Amino acid sequence: MTIFYRHDISAPITLKAAFMGSHRIFEDKAFKDESQNLPHHDWRDTELKLSMLEFSLGIEYNFLDYYDDIRKPHRVSPYFFIGAAVLNFNHQLTRQGDVMEPFDNKFTVSIPFGVGVKYALSKHWNLGLEFGPRFMFTDNLDYLQESGSALLAADLGTGNSKAYANPFDKDMYFYNGISLSYTLYRLNCPPVYKRKAGILD
């Protein structure tokens, strides 16, 4: 669920602030695929509960003039966006019903970017479609990091978590959304008339 506010500073450039909340449950058994040999998930056999709160600020570049009245009522524009976000997340790791890692509250920073399209349903109502990955600066979103989750590593008999973590990249998460927004138009009044001083004044 996302709440956002956009402010157009020019025809192609839009500033956006957004607040997103998400709760997910990841289970290793759900990744089983009979057509492939994937023993890793069966071996780990864990379940991860993950809740996230994200506040982001970004800039959008509209490729078409979305407010061009000549095209109405069918105004549409694809756009590209990039920004910065503060992420608060907490997660709990369980294995075969036993809590291996309790809920742990953390903060981190991510870089959202992606593409989308805006479509005007009417003068005020707009429909949007957006896809954007988030690059993170942590490798602990899913408790799978090279130096973390010692309890699970000990339970699996590895002694450390290097056996199942990828030390060569950081975590990522993705956002796919359909949005409905309402446009508020600002009508600029003409400047106050001032009578210029004449010859007889």
Rank of each mutant, 00 (worst) to 15 (best):
T2Y: 01
F4L: 07
H7C: 11
L15H: 05
K16Q: 13
A17L: 14
S22D: 13
D28V: 12
D28Q: 02
N37L: 08
N37Y: 13
N37I: 07
P39L: 08
P39S: 11
H41C: 03
R44S: 12
L48S: 03
K49H: 13
L50M: 14
F55S: 09
F55G: 14
L57T: 10
E60R: 13
E60N: 12
E60G: 12
N62G: 06
F63S: 08
Y66I: 14
H74A: 10
V86S: 11
N90V: 02
H91M: 10
D98V: 15
M100H: 01
M100G: 01
D104A: 12
G116N: 09
V117A: 14
V117Q: 01
E130V: 14
F131N: 03
F131W: 14
G132K: 02
R134M: 10
M136H: 04
M136Y: 03
D142E: 13
Q145T: 12
A153C: 06
A153V: 03
G157M: 04
G159R: 11
N160Q: 08
A163S: 08
A163P: 00
A165M: 00
P167R: 04
P167K: 08
F174S: 03
Y175T: 12
S181M: 06
L187I: 11
P190Y: 00
Y193C: 00
